[in-house]
Nucleic acid binder design. Structure first.
Length: 452
RNA sequence: GGCGACGUAGCCAAGUGGUAAGGCAGAGGACUGCAAAUCCUCUAUUCCCCGGUUCGAAUCCGGGCGUCGCCUCCA
């Protein structure tokens, strides 16, 4: 099955044809670690984590890199304010990222830190200068946008319109207002690295060009990130990477839409954010993933609590059907709904439509259960639903019917009381079980129970 | 001002030429010792508005209205 995704650069759906057959290499712009992240940041990470799961499922070997930007104005400002080193500050927020990412099921990936690649960045910048694409001034180095004819190819900004209405940085060293810094002069020895241009630190965009090339080579297959990074960040990445590699660094550029709050983009500057850690107190991580994947990745998604409540209820529906199925059957090789599910993802990674298939399969399974279908047929449903929830990373955790002597004894005693139609006694056992955090459900195939 | 998205039921959200997926919420019914779960039916004759193309449009074209994003080191 061919996989098609929307490429921002061409504005069209393109068939994924890996640079290296059988292997897909992905670079995702990771967080700047100057503060705790919010759920909007994680929308991007969850989307591309799920994309990687899908590509692996489709038979590709996936190499995925998601960086940490651990040096910029904000990280430096925070570290200075606290009187600690840059490393101490960024270590803290990287740890917090890892805590949240682990709970949200973000899988293994390469996670380079910008400050570990400063020498490589310097080499890259020297090459750009040698090729006439960059110039040094007052201890800083700037990329000359005019020197790169392809500038604007990603954001589709016509060159003569680019400056209209923009507020340009007042920097006397720049030859043209739209030029951007590759290297910034920084006198404080605690926050600078030696370079041919004197002490300084990297500009914003250079780390992604260097680290993606280091780990993935150029060109690689997919470059992902939030649509808010499209310009200038990704445009500048193309500009500073292309002269060295003689081609655009990434074949396909994928941009996810913003998470919004009350109609506006969720962002720290607007103070309309939810911290992931706060949400995890109220919602299972699977419910959060289900929510984040409930809209197409390119659409904006409204992060209202009601939406998360809805996802929580939807997740419960999955829990219930898995519990019903596991009570009476085991998964088979064949997977109900699976092919249709994969087809949705192969069509521009439409997780919203894929969720539709998942829930249609859930209803199909419940109907089959109600109609007394046999184990092999039910096993196909179980296999399908398990595979789909695994891929999306939303498999409920509390459906296991694990044995426990005390509970098993109480369930059996209650069952015996029910057989004798001593319902008062049966309800006493139900109450005891409830106090142990166990819910009992009666079915035509006997009672089943689970931990609430 | 420029560039780019988007506007589908009470809410969230698929569908990009062939007659409106799915989830949540709500109403009614079935099942049921209780409870839970589940199933069935109903809830948009219609997809922001106005024109146009077409046998046929939520889907294509033109115009309007509205919302959002980027043009600020924001995923």
């Amino acid at each position: 099955m061919s996989i098609r995704v929307h490429n921002t650069q061409s504005g069209e759906l393109e068939t994924l044809t890996p640079v290296h057959p059988g292997e897909v290499r992905i670079y995702v712009c990771g967080p700047t670690v100057y503060d705790e992240l919010h759920i909007g940041n994680f929308r991007c990470f969850v989307i591309f984590d799920t994309l990687a799961r899908f590509l692996r499922q489709s038979g590709y070997q996936v190499t995925k890199v998601q960086n940490f930007t651990d040096v910029d104005d904000r990280t430096i400002a925070s570290a200075k304010a606290e009187g600690i080193s840059l490393r101490q500050l960024t270590d803290r927020y990287i740890d917090l990222y890892h805590r949240d990412a682990a709970r949200l099921g973000i899988g293994e990936q390469i996670e380079p830190r910008a400050t570990d690649y400063v020498p490589e960045m310097i080499v890259h910048i020297e090459q750009l200068i040698a090729l006439g694409h960059a110039y040094a001034a007052d201890g800083s180095v700037y990329f000359s946008v005019r020197s790169f004819a392809g500038y604007g190819q990603l954001s589709h900004q016509p060159a003569d319109e680019r400056q209209a209405g923009t507020r340009v940085e007042l920097d006397p060293g720049k030859q043209a207002p739209e030029d951007f810094a590759l290297w910034k002069h920084e006198p404080d020895p605690n926050f600078s690295w030696p370079s041919p241009w004197g002490p300084g630190r990297p500009g914003w965009h250079i780390e992604c060009s260097v680290m993606s090339a280091h780990h993935l080579g150029v060109p690689f297959d997919i470059h992902g990130g939030g649509v808010d990074l499209l310009f200038p960040h990704h445009e500048n990445e193309i500009a500073q990477s292309t002269p060295l590699a003689h081609e655009s660094p990434a074949r396909i550029w994928m941009h996810n839409g913003m998470l919004t709050m009350s109609g506006e983009k969720m962002s720290k500057s607007l103070k309309n954010t939810f911290r992931v850690s706060d949400l995890l107190d109220r919602y299972a991580p699977e419910a959060i993933r289900l929510f984040l994947l409930s809209a197409h990745y390119r659409s904006p998604l409204a992060a209202e609590l009601e939406g998360l409540d809805q996802a929580k209820a939807a997740l419960r529906r999955i829990e219930n059907v898995l519990r019903r199925l596991r009570h009476v059957t085991v998964p088979t090789e064949q997977k109900e709904g699976w092919d249709r599910f994969l087809a949705c993802l192969a069509d521009d990674f439409n997780t919203a439509e894929a969720q539709g298939v998942l829930f249609e399969t859930v209803r199909g399974a419940n109907t089959a259960l109600d109609h007394g279908a046999k184990a092999p047929a039910l096993g196909r449903y179980l296999a399908g639903i398990e595979a789909m929830t695994e891929l999306l990373g939303v498999t409920p955790q509390n459906t296991e019917l694990n044995a426990d002597d005390e509970i098993a004894l109480l369930v059996a005693a209650r069952e015996s009381a029910r057989q004798g139609r001593d319902f008062a006694l049966a309800d006493q056992f139900r109450q005891q079980l409830k106090e142990l955090g166990v819910v009992v459900e009666d079915t035509s195939q006997g009672s089943r129970w689970y931990r609430a």
